[in-house]
Design a protein around this nucleic acid. Sequence first.
DNA 1: TTGTAAGCGTTATCAG
DNA 2: CTGATAACGCTTACAA
Lengths: 351, 351
Amino acid sequence: MSDGAPGGQRTTLADIARRLGVSVGAVSAALNGRPGVGDPLRRTIEQTAAQMGYSRNRSAVALRTRRSGLIGLLIRNLRNPFFLDVAEGFERECAAHGSEVLIGSSHYDVAREQALVRAFADRAVDALALAPIGGGTAGQSWQAMTGAPLALINAATYGQHLPALRVHSDGKAAMEGAVRHLVALGHHRITALAVKNSSESDRSEYFRAAMRSVGLRPRVLLATNTSWNAIELTLRADRSRGPARCATAVVTNSDDMAHGIYAAVRQLHLNIPRDLSVLGNDDLDTSALLDPPLTTHYVDRRGMGRDAARMLLQTLNSTTQPQPREVVLPVALQVRGSTSAPLTRDVARDR
Amino acid sequence: MSDGAPGGQRTTLADIARRLGVSVGAVSAALNGRPGVGDPLRRTIEQTAAQMGYSRNRSAVALRTRRSGLIGLLIRNLRNPFFLDVAEGFERECAAHGSEVLIGSSHYDVAREQALVRAFADRAVDALALAPIGGGTAGQSWQAMTGAPLALINAATYGQHLPALRVHSDGKAAMEGAVRHLVALGHHRITALAVKNSSESDRSEYFRAAMRSVGLRPRVLLATNTSWNAIELTLRADRSRGPARCATAVVTNSDDMAHGIYAAVRQLHLNIPRDLSVLGNDDLDTSALLDPPLTTHYVDRRGMGRDAARMLLQTLNSTTQPQPREVVLPVALQVRGSTSAPLTRDVARDR
DNA sequence: TTGTAAGCGTTATCAG
DNA sequence: CTGATAACGCTTACAA
């Protein structure tokens, strides 16, 4: 504050050194808690710095140390509230460690994802949390370009050769739980709805496995993107198979997509759960307030962001070899109104 | 890409210059489209740069030019989906101009808001979009510290002396529309629910004015924060006034808070709209899917983020004097199921 | 314990 | 039109 002419010169180490008649190195050492400066002098320097309203020029520090104090968060889709909570947890943890968060969204665009990785590298971003696009090579590029820590969010099987940190919810348990729940209700024609390029194809695999294990034929619908329109199109295609063949229940990877289904179902003048049972994943705050309340798997999204940040910062500040770690967050089924027994007992078991 | 030893040296201007046997200055000029280098040489340089996988070290550029290419987005609350869309529009616009977005959340904490402004200033952030906390002086600090462009989001009357850009929805129209709608339904005991320190106190003022203009006594409830708990507490306090005095309708500043009311109402075993009409603001995507669908004012949130970014970038890249501008986004009432005539005709008109 | 000086990779000034 | 050269503000050997 003090001498704050709008955009006026900011105090530098040299200013402080000059004022005190000491060397710049001493001031730097003092202010960074490095050894090499006596206690009395250190105190004097600290006081003067505070009084002159000094704070470090991060650009200079970054240039010199190749450390920016920036942590990148690169996600697929800024519109999914899921990421809000992840980002919240992430930001809180970073803030506690004095790092700022650089955020970017790839919008499911491989080129943009690549461009952002590069931009982050150019900025000497210290570590990257990435929710990658399937088919993209952002994680690989990041490590090749920077060698800096990488945390993969919700991408259990993405780039399996990458020595990366991983945080994801227990997709296997979620899919098994979903199928079990629906089968118990009497469903046979269950389909999964996923979005292309989401790098969550492992989820679809888990779904297939779960279905097979109970003797049912798995079907996976792929929407071209996460928009409600795309979801409606996909759902419409399924309904056109006719009442005896279309799905009686649909399982999604996210509550966000489930919302899309809700909207589509209204467009199609159908009813949840009478005509279609819907199962989400994430348990967004609003999901319990929907009409009908959404059956879904809860996952600690904030904890996810927090853990990702924590692992990255740990790796960053540790001298020892960074061992790739994996955090799998448990899921918990919340049974609510969007799932029920199928209306029509389907005779032709679809095996 | 090319010579990418993990974390290996990145190509610098000097590398290119050496390879080509020219000066560093020439390479810099060529790559930045500055005059001072012939066309043939420029072409050669560009090719070699691309081939060597060169990209600028932003830390060095930032140190030298005092321009980081970073745009700050400082909001109050990362958990409100409202900001997701604002951030989306903001990020898209910035990306289109080659700027990255540094995001921060003050969590309604004045000290943290101040710290973030300072951190952004230290980073040579080029411009700041701020959804400020009431009572905070972040905007002022920013301008004093940096003299860089400032855009205020949804803070119509915050720091009125600040020569800042402003983007906000038409709070006056929203409040007038809300009151008009509720009065038409037959409500008299209408209350506004706001959160402390939100710097949206102008909204409450508009509410009061609108109420008075129809001859009703305005009452404003203040929740200590945006959590569902706090909202429930506040609502409970109102209900305890008894059926003849408690509000029959509540108007909020955001759908997010309206969600909190939905949750609280369930806790209290009440019914919307029978026991309480609820009116939101923002028209989040999910709001139409709620039980009951939320009556609310639509506002173009993405456009808000886009406009904020656009104005900042414009100011940044213009040589002429930056004239403070204001963008007021129109609102549009979406009448849905959360508002209806009050259950009990209230006899004692609460004037 | 303290001071000195060499960079980090750019941009920008100023002689050739 | 070109090519040295001096900053930008900081960290970090290394010398005193």
